Every structure is written in structure tokens, then in C-alpha cells.
Simulated scan of single mutants.
Amino acid sequence: MLSSLLLSALLFPALSVQIAESSAASVPPGAQRVEMLALQLSASCSEDVSVHSVTLTHRGLGSIRDIAAVYAMSDGVRISRARALSSRDGTVMLTFRPAFLVSACGMRDLSIMADFSSDAVRAGEHRITLSAVEHIDADDVPVTISSASAAPVRTTVGQSQGSVEISFLPLFSRVRYGAHRIVSRFRLTAEEYDQAVDALTLTNDGAARAEDLQNLTLETSRGQVLARLSSLDGDRAPFVLTSPFIIERGQVFLLTVRADVLASRRRTIDFILEEPSDLVARRVTRRR
């Protein structure tokens, strides 16, 4: 006969959340995409489970103001908007639209990430915790949380990482149907220190979607191709550069996105940087 636990897993929906073990680490002020909490979500075998939101809490001796934003990622993709911690109680709710789906009998990894402020106080200690099953909205599906250890501590040390500023520019003319059209123009500027840009995800705030733009390229003003995409991923263009693009302090570079436009004018194109962390850059030290 089937055990009661196995029978329950087959007949009733449930979600198990495992907080993965992680070591403490030091991070510099201004650091991006710092993993604060690693979660493994497993669904019972009766049906898929949809997770709509998680509510998290800041712990530790560091100031809440040291953390600029908190957000969720899965499979290398940001799946929530970035949100600031509440100055009142240090909590933050991350909402998933569409819902974060865990297939029946399946497991998915979910990472809680943070961007640190460039003026974060040195020696500040920070943890992000998931403290109660009520803090996971999964359509009233029963949730259990288990943890191998406490949430890891992130301590701010060292010098600021600096940043890269992005400024979008108007297009020369209306985007028309055809090959290799310019669909976005913008400037990148390195603030404070030399920077290496590793990735850039642009979001189309217009109506065009995956099949409307194909063969996208990210290019310099001299025509050097930095990254390619076969098409949009939904409303996003997640460019991963083939090699880091170096911007020295104070330098300004004009970049363009070109694409084969296969849509009518009604499928509008308006690329934006939805969140600061969608531009992945790091400080570099180079011999002169």
C-alpha cells in the first residue's frame, strides 16, 4: 500500500521550499546582482503550483538604506520588478507577473538578489530572510519551508564599484518594415571608475513582441557587433556580450540596436532599461 505521505503527494497540491546553504561573503558598495537567498521550490505530483509573490525581511546590523533594491531571478532571468525595502519594518514583497510556475513533481530554483547602494556604509551586515509560510502566495496551496542554515550574511567592504549611466536618444526617423533597421539608440557613460559591461537587457515598452523583431544586433557607432539575438524573448532583448565592453572613466559611447522589423506600425517599438540591474557592469582596474 502507498504510504500516507506518498498518497498525499499524489492527490493534493503542495509546495516545498528549501532554503539552500550558502556561505557568508563580502560585497563592495555599488555591487549588483548579489545573491542574498537561494531557494529551491518543489511541487507535489498532483498538479502545477503557481507562486504569485514572496515577502522577505531584512535582518542584520547594516542599514536598510545600504540596499538599493531587491528582486528575484530564475535561470539567469529577472522575473520580478526591483523593489526597495520598507523603511518601517525592512520587508519587501516581490510579485511575479506572470506567476512563477512549478510543474507537478518538478523543482525550480529561485534566487533573491540585491543591488547595493554606491554609498553603502562599510562593515554593514545584511541578510534577507523568508521567515514564514504565510509569506508565500501560492493560491492557498499548503507550503512548507525547510532550511539547512540561516540566511547568509553579506558584509559591505572596500571601495564603491562605480556605475554606468545610460541615456536613450531619439531615432532619426520612424521605424519601418524591413531588414537591419535601427530600433534603439543610447549613450553609455562610465561614472567614477573604468567599467566592463557584460550584459544588457532592454525591454520594449511598445507593442512589438518576439516574432515582430528578428536578428537583433547590439552595435557600436563604428559598426562593431557586441552581441546578437535571433529574436525578442517576449518583450525583452537580453544581450550577452561576446566579450566585455570596456568604458573608461568619463568616456561616452553611442550604441545602437538593429533588427529585421517584420511588424506593422501598430506594433510599436520603444526600448527602455526597465531596472538598473538590467545593465550588468563591473569596475575594472587596468594598467596604464
Rank of each mutant, 00 (worst) to 15 (best):
S80A: 10
S80I: 10
S80N: 03
S80Y: 04
A82C: 08
A82T: 03
A82G: 15
R83V: 15
R83M: 14
A84S: 15
A84G: 12
L85Y: 09
L85W: 04
L85K: 04
S86H: 01
S87C: 02
S87H: 01
R88A: 13
R88M: 06
D89I: 02
D89Y: 02
G90A: 12
G90T: 05
G90Y: 12
G90S: 12
G90H: 12
T91I: 08
T91Y: 09
T91A: 13
T91E: 13
T91V: 12
V92M: 07
V92N: 04
V92D: 08
V92F: 05
V92G: 02
M93S: 15
M93Q: 14
M93H: 00
L94C: 13
L94T: 14
L94Q: 11
T95P: 04
T95N: 13
T95W: 10
T95R: 15
F96H: 00
F96P: 00
F96W: 00
F96G: 01
R97S: 14
P98S: 10
P98E: 06
A99I: 00
F100R: 04
F100Y: 14
F100G: 08
F100L: 14
F100W: 15
L101Q: 13
L101A: 04
L101E: 07
L101C: 09
L101G: 00
V102S: 00
V102R: 00
S103C: 03
S103N: 09
S103M: 07
A104W: 05
A104Y: 05
A104P: 03
A104H: 10
C105V: 02
C105E: 00
C105T: 02
G106D: 05
M107R: 15
M107Q: 15
M107E: 09
M107V: 13
M107I: 06
M107N: 06
R108F: 06
D109A: 13
D109E: 14
L110D: 00
L110R: 06
L110Q: 03
S111A: 11
S111E: 12
I112F: 04
I112S: 02
M113A: 06
M113Y: 04
M113L: 10
M113V: 05
M113K: 08
D115E: 13
D115T: 13
F116D: 02
F116N: 06
F116Q: 09
F116H: 01
F116K: 10
F116P: 01
S117Q: 11
S118H: 07
D119Q: 10
D119T: 14
D119H: 08
A120T: 09
A120S: 14
V121P: 06
V121D: 08
V121I: 11
V121H: 12
R122F: 09
R122V: 09
R122S: 11
R122M: 06
A123P: 01
A123V: 04
A123F: 15
G124E: 14
G124D: 12
E125V: 07
